[in-house]
Write a protein that binds this DNA or RNA. Structure first.
Lengths: 337, 337
DNA sequence: AGATGGACGGAAAGGGCTTTCCCTTAGATA
DNA sequence: TATCTAAGGGAAAGCCCTTTCCGTCCATCT
């Protein structure tokens, strides 16, 4: 691997000069030397060692992103938004999948700190585990104190810049929509109990129930993925066969539920209405197309990245950007028969 | 930010000893000093500077992955497989999205080289652009010569380890399936002409047509995404209203096509059969569920990562792992009316 | 002509870590 | 008890860059 010294030698200049030409400094260098150096770079196919650079410069550039799982469309969309802004700003993004394991999340924070990431973006719900929340906060604190920036998407615990999807009011919208249509027997497919996203959305549903003088007949907890959504739907229908509507706390589970209902010959929305949450791209392609609560996922990602990139002074109060939801009415909901 | 020197000072040992304890060397250190150092680490929340480490060690660890777009389910699934193996081996993955821009792909190769990535995995079709293919090969050569490893998924050009989905024979399977059902008027929705995946799959379709003594009525080129798939379907139906089957070269476009057909009141599969390619997770959830050619995407990713991690000697011949496809019959295909 | 200043190039000092090489000390052996 | 060995600890060199500081040279001004 060619080093700067090799280039300098070949161009018969000092490493200092070569560095100035290659990495662009505000010091001027004559065109003659410049040409010689660039020729040497070309010939040796020299690329500066980024580790040495960031060591010497003491300046961070990469952005670390910790998500639950990129292959989940929810995070894929957020990531898309994140990357767009990062690329526009010439920043490298390091994506880390925690696979919903708090331990791994902690490890990744350390790893990103070790790699001198300029910022860490934590995307995705936090966990209801105080022990864990405390270690996380502590690690993030240390990181921020050393000059890193932290931005979270959809989490409460940490006192930093945050992009917050309005999960509670989204939940409210979802349930209200069902009640508005006249449903009296509503079941809920929730996500993992440990996630704050679950509790928030659920809280919204419950508030809507209270406001409408109705109640949610049953809540089953699943894993935010399709298959567990299907299982949950089965459990729901088994215990309350006269249910007329199901609210799932994300689209994947809603789609799983619809698959199960179809398999049992229960027609949607004639017999049972289904409403999802997130408005993932697939939602409009399933049949019946899924009524859901839209979250502008890609924008959320973009906003988070913008917050992270604004270098801002260290001690200002954290900025919280609230992102609101809206109902997207499609064909999976209808008044009860 | 605490440094190793700080830790050493606090523990009243030399930096050498501290390093040995923290980063594990084969030299033994007494338990007493070990305890002192670990206590200091804890107290200072010390994390070694990864840049300095990799500079000093001259040993690479991160794996760079260049994909077209992680938010595309095709790549999301591959990435999932990649990450699984990487995590099992304690490796960090840097994901780069080229958004199908060859230029950006070149830039990312340089960037990963600069960051001393241990290996680069290029996922996703190559481009029919010789100029570009040449620069890419050259850059990869330099990278390999400097000790990096390169693995490609689904590309021809470069002479390295490769995981190759059997695109051509998958195309053959897709068309054969339609012909077997008795379709005589088959339209094709292809991907971007510049991608080799497109040409390969198309070649398979054509070979099947030849073998069956049929022909493909019309091929429209789209962008491998849902919306362009819908447009392409519109164009297809407009120019050949008596088409009875559509083969799309990936599932996203197939789903777009089904959406358009539904919108026009053309029933699938009664009037028109649709077959996709890839078997993305959503394929089974659309209605009618999509018949498609399955590619074990996550396994492909895992295999590629394994190849990349096997450090193997430099001069052995490249290993090519062929991944075969299979037909997954669902409800979107049927004999013509 | 001599002094002054500006422009450009190079020497060298880090930046944080690992690792080789050497020294000290304690334990083992004769 | 004297000698040898092994093991643990530290000094310092080096990994590849950037950047400050200094020296040189030439052009300009008085």
């Amino acid at each position: 691997m060619a080093t700067l010294a090799d280039v300098a030698k070949k161009a018969r200049v000092s490493p200092a000069t070569a560095s100035r030409i290659i990495s662009g400094s505000n010091k001027r260098v004559t065109d003659q030397l410049r040409a010689r150096v660039l020729a040497a770079v070309e010939e040796l196919q020299y690329v500066p060692n980024a580790n040495a650079q960031s060591l010497a410069r003491m300046q961070r550039s990469a952005i670390g992103v910790i998500v639950h799982d990129v292959s989940d469309p929810y995070f894929a969309e957020i990531t898309r938004g994140l990357q767009r802004i990062a690329t526009e700003n010439g920043r490298l993004v390091i994506i880390c999948n925690s696979y919903r394991d708090p331990e791994r999340e902690l490890e990744y924070v350390e790893l990103l700190r070790a790699h001198q990431a300029a910022a860490i973006i934590l995307a995705g719900s936090g966990y209801h585990d105080n022990q864990f929340a405390k270690s996380l906060s502590q690690k993030l604190d240390v990181y921020e104190r050393s000059g890193g920036r932290v931005t979270v998407i959809g989490r409460h615990q940490h006192a930093t810049d945050a992009v917050m999807p309005a999960n509670e009011s989204g939940g409210y919208l979802a349930a209200s929509e069902l009640f508005r249509l006249g449903h009296k027997h509503v079941g809920v497919i929730a996500g993992p109990k440990a996630l704050t996203t679950t509790t928030d959305r659920l809280a919204g549903l419950r508030r809507a129930a209270k406001d409408s003088g109705r109640r949610l007949m049953r809540t089953v907890y699943a894993e935010f993925d399709r298959d567990s959504g299907a299982e949950a739907a089965a459990e729901l229908m088994d215990s309350y066969p006269n249910l007329t509507a199901i609210a799932a706390l994300n689209d994947s589970m809603a789609i799983g539920a619809m698959a199960l209902l179809r398999q049992r010959g229960i027609s949607v929305p004639q017999r049972v209405s289904v409403i999802g949450f997130d408005d993932m791209p697939i939602a409009r392609d399933v049949t019946p197309a899924l009524t859901t609560i839209r979250l502008p996922l890609s924008d959320i990602g973009a906003t988070a990245m913008k917050l992270a990139l604004e270098s801002g002074q260290r001690d200002r109060p954290p900025r919280i950007v609230e992102i609101s939801c809206e109902v997207v009415r499609r064909e999976s909901t209808a008044p009860p028969a």
